[in-house]
Simulated assay, not measured.
Amino acid sequence: MKLTGREKTELFLEGVVTVILLLLLNLSIIVLINETLSTNPGLQDGIFIIKRSIVIGPNHYQIWSWENIFIAAMFVFDAAVVYWRLIRRYHQIELRHIINELHYIANGHLDHRIDFHLSGNTQTVVESINALVDSVIESIEEERAIEHSKDELITNVSHDLRTPLTSILGYLGLIQDKQYHSEEDLLKYTEIAYLKSKQMKSLVDNLFEYTKVQQTGTQLSYNRIDVDQMLEQLVASFELEANKHDLVVTADDNDSQLFIEADAEKLGRVFNNLIANAIKYGVGGKHIYLKATKKNDEEAVIEVINDGPKIPKESLNQIFERFYRVEGSRNKDTGGAGLGLAIAQSIVQLHGGYIDVTSDDEFTTFAIHIPITRNDQITNPQSHQLISKQGEKK
């Protein structure tokens, strides 16, 4: 911290005034002592006896001049008092500088930091203030991000609801106005309205599921799950849908049974979303493979692999963001709300795991890393952060 000329003068005057006051105090004490000794011969005799009895060193030097000893002691005391007063004044100046910096930051200069390098507890105060400002800025940025996210949520939901709703109202309007030429047209219009209504219901259900898994304190109902049996059930449930898209869903057999503790309903939602996603976007592919392995005593890896088109590299880091869609349009036939992968990731994080995705010209693989028991914790090597079973990074 650099002192101004005024502050240096303030320190100098503080020292001068302190020295003057101490000199007056010392003079007063000396005068009082001399006056007391001159009026009390018995006290003088006592001091003389004491001086004769005090010897110093092997040669037995005696102390005869107590005035010199007193003056030396007073000099040390005075120097200590002057030093204490100057240090005290200097700390007051430091605090004044810190307060001025705080006022400057409070006036809206949030990018400013106190760059003093002080000593002792004052430096701790400076570091704490800088950390507090950083925390405030981080909170402000998070709040702005949340507001932006809310705006984006409203925009996307409005768009995704308005599109099918417009179709429903349009076709129902045609029916109400009897603007159809045959019963076949009537059935066609009602079928389209029905399909669009299902699309809206699917979006609402996804929004409800996403907000539910995002809430803090979401409780999981743990069950002991046979992973091989679960994969077989998934193959059976998606077999017809996959055949419609010329895809074959298969599950690899494990040499030994693999059991995990998880919420069966929510974990089923994860695989439903991932397999449905593979079917929807796996145009041109022929297979969807389900594979489960035990990585170690604490971690299981369950993979959903398809040989469809490669996911662009620039999309891999954003693929789990809500409402993000690789094809970049919200009106494609493939188009859902873009919440499926975000829901899947949130559910896996609730279990204390994470989802890793890789894609090349041969395969696209979604690997679900999940703890084998509810008490296990696993590490995401990409983030180097420990994810607890409640989905919070520690």
Rank of each mutant, 00 (worst) to 15 (best):
I71Y: 14
R269E: 12
G328Y: 05
K286D: 06
E141T: 10
F208Y: 09
R330L: 12
N296C: 05
I69A: 13
T364K: 05
N331D: 14
D134K: 10
I370P: 02
E362A: 07
E321K: 13
G173D: 06
T166N: 09
D263Y: 01
Y171A: 05
Y194F: 15
E143V: 09
Y281N: 03
V301S: 00
T334K: 09
I129S: 07
H117A: 09
Y83H: 07
I192M: 13
R96W: 05
A193Q: 09
N317P: 00
V76K: 10
H384F: 10
H112F: 12
V235F: 02
Q229Y: 08
A292C: 04
G328T: 04
I192G: 07
S221E: 03
H351C: 08
L350S: 06
E14T: 14
S388D: 11
S202E: 14
F363R: 09
E362H: 08
I98C: 04
A145R: 15
S139D: 11
P381Y: 08
K201Q: 12
A344H: 05
N243T: 07
I29G: 11
N223F: 06
V348K: 04
E298G: 01
V31K: 13
S65N: 14
H97T: 03
G328D: 10
I87Y: 13
G352F: 04
F75E: 14
S346D: 11
E184H: 06
F116N: 08
Q382D: 13
D246F: 07
A236V: 13
H245R: 06
P58E: 13
M74V: 14
L203D: 05
Y171G: 01
Q215W: 01
T218D: 02
A276T: 03
Y104L: 06
P371K: 01
N243P: 00
V17G: 12
I302W: 02
T365F: 00
E327S: 11
I29N: 13
L118F: 06
Q385P: 01
Q92V: 03
I347C: 07
A337G: 15
L174D: 07
V125M: 14
V270Q: 03
E392H: 11
K295H: 00
A344Q: 05
K188G: 06
I29Y: 13
D356H: 06
F70W: 11
E7I: 07
P381A: 05
P309Q: 07
Q385C: 06
Y83P: 02
I93L: 09
N156A: 05
I387W: 03
E101M: 08
T250P: 00
I54Q: 09
L21N: 15
L153G: 05
S388G: 11
N121H: 12
V227I: 08
V19R: 15
T155C: 02
L161V: 06
P381F: 09
H159R: 02
A145L: 14
I260W: 04
P41K: 07
D111H: 03
R6A: 13
I225V: 13
H109S: 03
F320Y: 08
S315Q: 07
L231Y: 00
I98R: 04
L247C: 05
Q123M: 11
I372G: 06
I99Y: 11
G173K: 01
E184C: 01
L169R: 00
A262G: 08
T18M: 15
A72D: 15
G42N: 10
I260S: 03
T358E: 09
S38D: 15
R330H: 10
S197N: 14
A242W: 01
H384Q: 15
V55L: 15
Q214D: 01
A131N: 13
I279W: 01
I319P: 02
A367E: 06
G285M: 03
T124Q: 15
